[in-house]
Nucleic acid binder design. Sequence first.
RNA 1: GCGAGAGUGGCGGAACUGGCAGACGCGCCAGACUAAGGAUCUGGUGACCAAUAUUGGUUGUGUGGGUUCAAGUCCCACCUCCCGCACCA
Length: 796
Amino acid sequence: MERYEPKNIEQKWQQKWLENKCFQAGDASEKEPFYALVEFPYPSGVGLHIGHPRPYTGMDVLARTRRMQGYNVLFPIGWDAFGLPAENYAIKNNIHPAEVVRRNVEHFRGQIRRLGFSFDDTREVNTTDPDYYKWTQWVFLKMVEHGLAYKANMPVNWCPSCKCVLANEEVVGGQCERCESPAEHRDKSQWMLRITQYAQRLIDDLDLCDFPSRVIAQQRNWIGRSEGAEVTFQLTVDSGELTVYTTRPDTLFGATYMVISPEHPLIETVKSKIKNYGEADDYRRAAARKSDFERTELAKEKTGVRLDGVTAINPVNDQELPIYVSDYVLMSYGTGAIMAVPGHDIRDWEFAKTFGLPIVEVVAGGNIEKEAYTDTETGTMVNSGFLNGLEVADAKKAITGWLAEKGLGEPKVRYKLRDWVFARQRYWGEPIPIVHCPVCGMVPLPEDQLPLKLPDVQNYKPTDTGESPLAAITEWVNTPCPQCGAPAKRETDTMPQWAGSSWYFLRYTDPCNGQELASKDALRRWMPVDWYNGGMEHTTLHLLYSRFWHKFLFDIGVVDHPEPYKKRTSHGFILGSDGTKISKTKNNGMDPDDVVKTYGADTLRLTILFIGDFEKGCQWSEQTLKGCRRFLERVHALACNGTTVDEVKLHQTIKKVTEDIEGLKFNTAIAAMMSLLSLMEKGCAKSDVNIFLRLLSPFAPHICEELWERQGEKGLCCQAEWPQYDPAKTVEESVELAVQVNGKLRATVTVPRGCDNQTAAAAALAAERIQAIAEGREPVKTIVVPDKLVNLIFKG
RNA sequence: GCGAGAGUGGCGGAACUGGCAGACGCGCCAGACUAAGGAUCUGGUGACCAAUAUUGGUUGUGUGGGUUCAAGUCCCACCUCCCGCACCA
């Protein structure tokens, strides 16, 4: 028999699968549809990296298994190809970004094919294809029409290195998520999407989603709902007022001062009354100069300036409260102003200590001399007038009612989530289909003028002024107003990369439709996605954005379901052999192409899945690669003889592998097949091999096709039926019982399965070892766990 | 600080509703085949202590307590690590 040479067989079967259209989803099929989705890649210049094969292999196993189980499977792939890296590469090498993308996609396509993934190659989508982004623009126009897209002058996060604005979600620790430059503040007129309007539904409908708990928790946390009240304080000057938001209206009696954020307009409206306006203004300017990064880094020390000459009146006790301006209060949350209750808020407590302000206890239970008492579960109101004696929860209700009655405040729900900054000042993105007309104002491009294509330019370089390179293309920018025909100008910002990926899974259902984003029929057949696997890093970005878009499309009747994904799972990252992030320079990882060349795609696939729990992080190791290659060599060398393999073991393995695939426990599924192989090497029949190959084929599809053919089986292994197990045959006729004495294992005995407790106990007691220990004594107690163990309790 | 995980041999990792801890793989040890083995095959392999050499015992899942006939698994307290959010009132 010839040696196992992956390179001789893998390409051959990849070709056969293609010729036989094995992986094309059927649009007219009677079979039950199953939509398996992986996050489509950004086709970068360096090609497929370690991050890609893991989720793809995992979902490929699932898709291949589902096909064999008789489902009509949609398992597509595409290219999320707009974005900065292609543009930066284009600038550096003076090649058009479209050409860069074309090359990269070709490279990726080849790599993906060489790994044997069963993607439907007839449904590829590319976000930079005008036939695709036509519909991205269309959804945007629908959002404009429904008031969900708007342009507003906003303080935005600006990345000085990328030279464009960032969404809140793209700022991590005050830094640009992509290049780690500290983000700056800029005031800019920006296109925004009103995702906040969907905040509550994005929380509520998590109940409809089968997502990992950590994903649900992270999304909830990100949306950040809080319940509280807005309370209005009268000022002692100009009959002005100051409204604050608080989640603890119950502590109103404990407010000893007020704080407004440096950006709060009050400073200007009562400017003439502020005796130390100069000082306040200096503080405000200093705060404005700080980047988010600096603000968070320097968050330890509380700073601020008291506004001299202006005070507020606490509505519950008419106490006069000083007002401070401090950057620990953010303009972007609540009303940009707070009532400070140092006794029961950590930050207020720190501020009060720094500035020597009074700290009043209004909830008993802590020691406010030492620290703020923030517990809301236990505690009784004190020093709080009519609230005295109430528990916190009751006090909240009482004060809220009182405030509403007096017209001083009302209950309010707030979210941390902010609207989505939906524009970038770069070339390589979807043009925003809007025309600015001096007569009509902002005019959406009529639908029949879509797609609005990107013009060819010579220079893609972004500008420091914050204008997109498109602004320099006068022949493109200047256009007659679609409404009145007057000379007008196009919007020159483009959409962020997240636009195209917010609905791509819909396009896969009907990728060539020129009339609609996808036909109703196709959407009904395939949506919602049955199983979506992707990275945790997208939880508050892509996953949230796409849920929002889908809800909007649901509201306007494009899709029939409020949620796009039924089930979401997340793979763990593969770290380098040294436990750190894989990088080329550290040489601690692997290049998929190299591994395929030396070991073969099947070995790589197996290794990626065997190396650890799919949903947990794991470490790359060459050693595992060797073990998996050895396993496949043994499979290749497997020969039948006259005997058959143990039937129980065979059925147990079918059960184990089938169930483990469902739970993404690929590592233990492979372990079970390894055990079965060891047994089969001692003796098996052709029919055993037939079953074994079908079990293994989703994991190592090429070698299984080869052996399937070698064995003279009909058709293709990947189109064979998934093996069934007989539950009756998964259990042995006899079982080995553990025999314990006083809880310690002392012997094992073999008894018939399902024998009664007396029989089991008697067998245990009869064991030689147990006899020796018992020395004729009778156990004072006997515990029998059927088919598992007997525990004999002896005295003394 | 808040939220969600994790801690098991030399290593990667198994272990269902509490029921024989360490499956499977790597490595290592011994043997076989060899001119040779960094190839392949067979057997062994948590630690420690005994020994009639077949086994017997003790101990062992981050730490300290607890519940139970029985705990990696449940309860309480704590330590460490990773991830997400973080002055969100």
